[in-house]
Measured scan of single mutants.
Amino acid sequence: MATGGRRGAAAAPLLVAVAALLLGAAGHLYPGEVCPGMDIRNNLTRLHELENCSVIEGHLQILLMFKTRPEDFRDLSFPKLIMITDYLLLFRVYGLESLKDLFPNLTVIRGSRLFFNYALVIFEMVHLKELGLYNLMNITRGSVRIEKNNELCYLATIDWSRILDSVEDNYIVLNKDDNEECGDICPGTAKGKTNCPATVINGQFVERCWTHSHCQKVCPTICKSHGCTAEGLCCHSECLGNCSQPDDPTKCVACRNFYLDGRCVETCPPPYYHFQDWRCVNFSFCQDLHHKCKNSRRQGCHQYVIHNNKCIPECPSGYTMNSSNLLCTPCLGPCPKVCHLLEGEKTIDSVTSAQELRGCTVINGSLIINIRGGNNLAAELEANLGLIEEISGYLKIRRSYALVSLSFFRKLRLIRGETLEIGNYSFYALDNQNLRQLWDWSKHNLTITQGKLFFHYNPKLCLSEIHKMEEVSGTKGRQERNDIALKTNGDQASCENELLKFSYIRTSFDKI
């Protein structure tokens, strides 16, 4: 039985969820670079991206490699990797027998973001014989899940209580170790020597080791999670996991709180800001991140802002960003909400898709409305799209047979046209069989910064309504002859009103 693990408890099935942008060198404390989270699957090609990484700022997932063999891993080693800020997950990587050479110096898994409450997941690794993470000293947050690894031993010899604050939620089941077939031998045991430290858990006094050649490092209890030197002297209180010299914040392997210019500090002093819960960055760093993602459509890219001495992905609820200094300031009234469309555009074809934009005031991208039916549609669209004030790209209304009016965009005031449909149009209306009105132009103002209007096959939309939009939106004169079809717009509506004058002759039985 794995020490510190839980057996036999019912657990939810383990679901495996399925960018080499360097964020800056980590400095003297770390020998390499800070790398983003990685999802490495199918083959070993991307694994080489770990070569210079000291910190993975995010998670590391290595999974679904069915053609790899043990010899493929023999020359692979990433000794610079010290810390993973989120979680480490391995799933069905064939041929991998140990992690001792792959990650010989991995010391800390912070667990800032977890995989279903777990910071370390080893699942269905069919050839893994031992973990071998002999320098792993601290899992700051989260638990361990090690399950269905039929060859995995050296679990009962690990004292997880020396690595985690609590072992109650560890789930370590259905491994070879369960069948008591392992016969784990710690260093020196074969020669009758006791080389590794022994600890007591559940009444068992057991030597602690990761492999037959690597003991588990056990520091004096007084050192807590700070770690200790090879001689057993406690590291500085700002260290986490390990250090090369005692009581020196510049000799830590990793930091308990924050890293700044080669030393570990309790908090980031001005003019620095907390970033990702582990390091200090200056304003320029946060500003660069903001600008890199301002026009990016890459998933996970955030326009970072500053709030409460932190550089964070977005302002919290009730705050909006001051564009001059990136500071989050309290909103006066309802907060603006910028919604970034991942692929640059979004099609609204149902109430469900409209709900995804609920509360958005600025759309960074283009909207395509293609709704053919739905219950209580006008009210639903207004509830979900009615706060949109600005669209950076274009607005396209296409084959939306259920629409009679666009009044559900009740606050839309600006279409920038930074991206144009077919390279020309910022407003595009095609084949809307029941569209009769755009907006009530006596109450609604709309500016279209650039781009043209396109109207074709809107049989109940009168040309007068379209011409009014040209005047109000500032697009009059931009359109070419064929942009607004004269014969297919309003051709099934009563669009022309003329005053009919009647004269009559009164007659009676005795007068003409």
Rank of each mutant, 00 (worst) to 15 (best):
C223Q: 00
E33R: 11
R141Q: 04
T157I: 03
N322F: 13
S98A: 11
A190I: 06
L106V: 03
P271Q: 07
E130M: 14
P36W: 15
C243Q: 01
L50I: 07
L102K: 00
P187I: 10
E181N: 15
E207R: 09
L155Q: 03
A198Q: 04
L128I: 13
E97W: 13
P316T: 03
N202P: 04
T211G: 15
T85W: 07
A156Q: 10
K100C: 15
L131V: 15
L102T: 03
Q61L: 05
P104C: 02
C228F: 01
Q245I: 15
A198R: 13
Y304L: 08
V200C: 06
T157N: 04
C268T: 00
S161R: 03
G188N: 05
Q61A: 15
V253P: 04
N242M: 06
G142R: 00
G188F: 04
N149V: 02
K100N: 13
E314P: 14
T68G: 06
P249R: 07
S225F: 12
S323R: 06
N105Q: 09
P330Y: 08
S143P: 10
N135C: 05
S296L: 09
T250V: 07
E57H: 13
G37Q: 13
G37A: 15
L89V: 01
L152Q: 03
V34L: 14
D261A: 10
I109D: 00
L233G: 11
C182G: 01
F283T: 09
I306R: 02
Q245H: 09
N179A: 02
H226Y: 10
D75N: 14
N175I: 06
R113V: 13
L327I: 06
S317K: 14
C239W: 00
T140C: 09
G37V: 08
L155P: 01
P31H: 14
T329L: 11
S77E: 06
D261K: 10
M125G: 01
C328K: 00
N117I: 07
R110P: 00
E207V: 09
C53Q: 00
N170D: 07
Q204M: 08
V108A: 11
C335N: 03
L164A: 13
L60D: 00
P330D: 11
I306E: 10
H212Y: 14
N257D: 07
E124W: 02
K129N: 06
K217T: 15
E238V: 11
S244L: 13
L81Q: 00
S98Q: 04
C293K: 04
P36D: 04
K100H: 01
K310H: 04
Y319L: 04
M137S: 11
L50H: 02
S112T: 08
L327G: 09
H28M: 05
L44W: 09
N138L: 07
V305K: 10
N325I: 15
D288K: 07
L164Q: 07
T250D: 07
A119T: 04
G183S: 08
C182D: 00
E33Q: 11
T107W: 02
Q61T: 03
H226K: 11
C335Q: 03
L155F: 02
M83P: 00
E151I: 04
H59G: 09
V206Q: 15
Y94Q: 04
G188S: 11
P334N: 09
S225K: 05
S237V: 04
K217L: 07
T45L: 13
M321S: 11
R263P: 03
S161L: 13
R141L: 04
Q216T: 01
K310F: 14
G333T: 07
L88S: 02
I62K: 00
L89A: 02
G241I: 01
I109R: 00
A198N: 12
N308G: 04
K148R: 14
I158L: 11
L164T: 13
Q299K: 14
W160D: 00
C235R: 00
I158D: 02
V173G: 05
H48M: 09
C223T: 00
E151K: 04
L102A: 05
T199N: 07
A119Q: 00
I312S: 03
E180A: 11
L64A: 05
E238Q: 12
D277L: 12
T45E: 01
N257A: 07
E51C: 13
P336V: 13
P336K: 15
V144C: 10
S323Y: 07
I146G: 00
H28K: 09
E238W: 06
L327T: 09
M38P: 00
L332V: 15
V34S: 04
P249Y: 06
N149P: 00
F115Q: 05
N175L: 08
V167C: 15
N295K: 14
H48R: 12
C53L: 00
M65R: 03
G37H: 07
E151F: 08
N202V: 02
T107L: 07
G333C: 15
S296P: 07
H302D: 15
C280R: 00
D184L: 08
E51K: 02
D184Y: 09
M321W: 15
R298M: 12
V253D: 15
L131W: 00
G95I: 05
V265A: 09
R110I: 10
C182P: 02
G37D: 14
I163K: 00
N325C: 13
E180D: 05
L29H: 10
Y87R: 00
F66H: 01
A156R: 12
C234V: 00
L88C: 07
K176P: 05
S143Q: 05
L128F: 08
L63Y: 03
N43D: 14
L96W: 02
R256H: 12
I82L: 12
Y272A: 06
P271G: 09
T107A: 08
I146F: 09
H302C: 06
S324N: 08
L60I: 10
R208F: 13
P313W: 14
P316Q: 03
Y134H: 01
L164S: 12
N42E: 02
F285M: 07
T211M: 14
L233Y: 15
C264S: 01
T157C: 02
G241L: 01
M137N: 06
N282V: 05
T320G: 14
Y171V: 04
Q287E: 03
L96V: 06
G241K: 02
C239F: 00
L164V: 14
Y171I: 13
V34Q: 03
Q61E: 14
D169A: 12
A230L: 05
K191T: 11
G32E: 09
K176S: 04
I222A: 11
L174G: 11
H302S: 08
T194V: 09
N105G: 06
C196M: 05
T267P: 09
G58F: 00
I158F: 02
C215F: 02
C280K: 01
E130V: 07
T45R: 14
A119I: 00
P330S: 13
L327K: 15
D165S: 10
F116A: 01
C209S: 00
F275V: 05
C335P: 04
